[in-house]
């Protein structure tokens, strides 16, 4: 019933202290890309750009009273984005910069849980900037660094000039064990192509699943205390009610360990592809258009999290098909 307005895309910029977030943000704001951004930052003054629409946020995280212990949201974001949306016409995209130690889950969950944000914005991508030189150390001493990689839709591997090619290759392999889906872009002083980090929503999920769907499952390594990715696929169509019951139970039981779940699904009796995604226990999904001509209509599902039981998840996923 609300007036239909095109949802505003939101890019979340995350990364450990010193990884190069601010440099990248300054580049985004100074380059000509046809967007007028509103920017929500955690610290004023670092930005070299004079922009009317820079807002200081306080990262106020709180738990929702919805019986879900891992459902935390950023109250300040909900409030600030809500107010920004009333300045309609003054900007056409939003960037949210998080603090270095921030867990991206509350940011992502804010856009899934809050009615107004869900209706009027669309989470375009979580972009995680990591420092090639210091990433190995960060992964040892901080759970946040691992979480930020796990949540990423796009990873910018920055400061590549400070390490050797061999080190970079090893680093990329290490990142792949945590997040097998997100494309990794090498950069120096944040010189990544803006087309690699902006306007990704339209088909990023589909593209990344196509491109990286056959990655080697890192869960085979059994580092269960660390974040890993596993990918599942089935050829037979899924029965929607069965899938919903199964994934609902999985998210309810294991949502604390499941950081992100993404899938492109083929439901029996539905022509269009269904894009599914969840952040911890909070799920969201929508039809995203027909299957490409001549494609196999294979359903793919990717879990990124801790303590993933691949055989159990695979059996569960397979039990949702018409052949089960």
């Amino acid at each position: 019933m609300q007036a239909t307005v095109k949802p505003i895309p939101v890019t979340v910029l995350t990364g450990y202290l010193g990884a190069g977030k601010t440099t990248l943000l300054n580049r985004i704001l100074s380059e000509d890309h046809g967007h007028r951004f509103a920017v929500i930052v955690n610290e004023f003054g670092e930005l070299g750009i004079d922009n009317d629409l820079v807002v200081n946020a306080d990262e106020e995280v709180f738990e929702m009273n919805n019986g879900c212990i891992c459902c935390t949201v950023r109250g300040d974001l909900i409030r600030i984005v809500g107010s920004l949306l009333k300045r309609r016409g003054q900007f056409d995209a939003i960037i949210v910069e998080t603090t270095g130690v921030a867990n991206p889950a509350p940011v992502a969950q804010s856009f899934l849980v809050d009615e107004m944000l869900r209706e009027r914005t669309t989470l375009d991508a979580i972009v995680t900037v990591v420092d090639a030189k210091h990433l190995p150390l960060r992964l040892e001493d901080s759970a946040e660094a691992e979480g930020q990689l796990a949540f990423a839709d796009v990873i910018v591997l920055n400061k590549t000039d400070l390490v050797s090619e061999d080190e970079l290759t090893a680093l990329e392999a290490r990142i792949r064990t945590i997040n097998a889906l997100a494309p990794i872009h090498r950069a120096q002083r944040g010189n990544v192509a803006l087309s690699d980090i902006l306007d990704k929503s339209a088909f990023s999920l589909e593209k990344t699943l196509e491109k990286h769907g056959d990655f080697l499952d890192a869960a085979a390594h059994e580092h269960t205390e660390h974040v890993t990715s596993i990918s599942l696929s089935v050829d037979a169509p899924l029965i929607r009610s069965k899938f919903e019951a199964w994934i609902g139970a999985i998210l309810a039981e294991q949502g604390g360990n499941l950081l992100r779940t993404k899938g492109i699904l083929n439901f029996q009796g539905e022509d269009k592809r269904f894009a599914f995604q969840a952040v911890h226990m909070i799920a969201d999904g929508d039809h995203i258009g027909p299957w490409p001509e001549g494609s196999a209509k294979q359903s793919r599902l990717v879990f990124i999290g801790r303590d993933l039981n691949r055989p159990q998840l695979r059996r569960g996923f397979e039990s949702c098909t018409v052949r089960a």
């Binding site: 929702m64 009273n65 109250g75 909900i78 409030r79």
Partner: peptide, 9 residues
């Protein structure tokens, strides 16, 4: 302080 957990708008 009137306390009740959650976000009051």
């Amino acid at each position: 302080l009137l306390e009740w957990k959650g976000s009051h708008l």
